[in-house]
Simulated assay, not measured.
Amino acid sequence: MCTKWAKKELETLEEMAEMYTPEQIVFRLKRRGYYRTVSAVKNKLYSLGYSIRPILDNYSCSEIAKNLCLHPTTVTYWVRQGWLKAKKRCTSCYQVKSRDLKQFFKNPPQSIRKRIAAIDPQVVRYLVGSFRQDRCS
């Protein structure tokens, strides 16, 4: 059963869209008296043209690889080479900030520049948190 989104609810959603994860948005909506599932929030964000990843988010190497259709060891290799800045979470896990990923895509190493250029720009925009599309009124 689908419940129509209230105008105030949509305003709240758009206000939070670029700063919070869908889970955080659900929690905040609930505190304001609106009850939505995480998947409902994700679907609505997608239909409004927002990324479901907030701008200030962090990624694991496997998340980046999955979105870029690469093997996770490829992204880990980029980190170990010093091409992609990341923090070590455990012995084999790294955490990459969105801004570091953005910097990497803006200025990739010469040896993999062609490979990076071949990646779908829409996927790159999604990963770095600037996927918001222009919407028609």
Score class of each variant (00 low, 15 high):
117 A>T: 07
12 T>I: 03
7 K>Y: 14
45 L>P: 00
37 T>P: 04
14 E>L: 11
89 R>G: 10
102 K>V: 01
110 Q>A: 08
60 S>W: 01
83 W>I: 08
108 P>E: 02
63 E>G: 05
49 G>C: 05
96 V>G: 01
69 C>P: 09
57 D>G: 05
58 N>V: 05
103 Q>Y: 05
127 L>M: 09
102 K>R: 15
78 W>H: 07
117 A>V: 06
120 D>V: 03
50 Y>D: 02
26 V>C: 09
77 Y>G: 12
18 E>D: 11
91 T>F: 15
6 A>E: 15
74 T>H: 07
24 Q>K: 11
11 E>R: 12
105 F>S: 03
100 D>I: 09
117 A>F: 07
94 Y>I: 00
30 K>M: 02
62 S>F: 14
73 T>S: 13
51 S>T: 04
39 S>P: 11
40 A>W: 02
40 A>E: 15
72 P>S: 03
29 L>G: 10
85 K>V: 12
39 S>F: 08
32 R>D: 14
81 Q>M: 13
130 S>W: 13
113 R>D: 00
82 G>C: 06
46 Y>A: 13
51 S>Q: 04
114 K>P: 00
72 P>Q: 09
55 I>P: 09
37 T>S: 15
72 P>L: 05
101 L>W: 09
118 A>P: 04
25 I>N: 05
93 C>Q: 15
62 S>C: 07
43 N>M: 13
40 A>K: 03
69 C>Q: 14
113 R>W: 05
50 Y>Q: 09
132 R>S: 01
63 E>T: 03
10 L>E: 15
128 V>A: 06
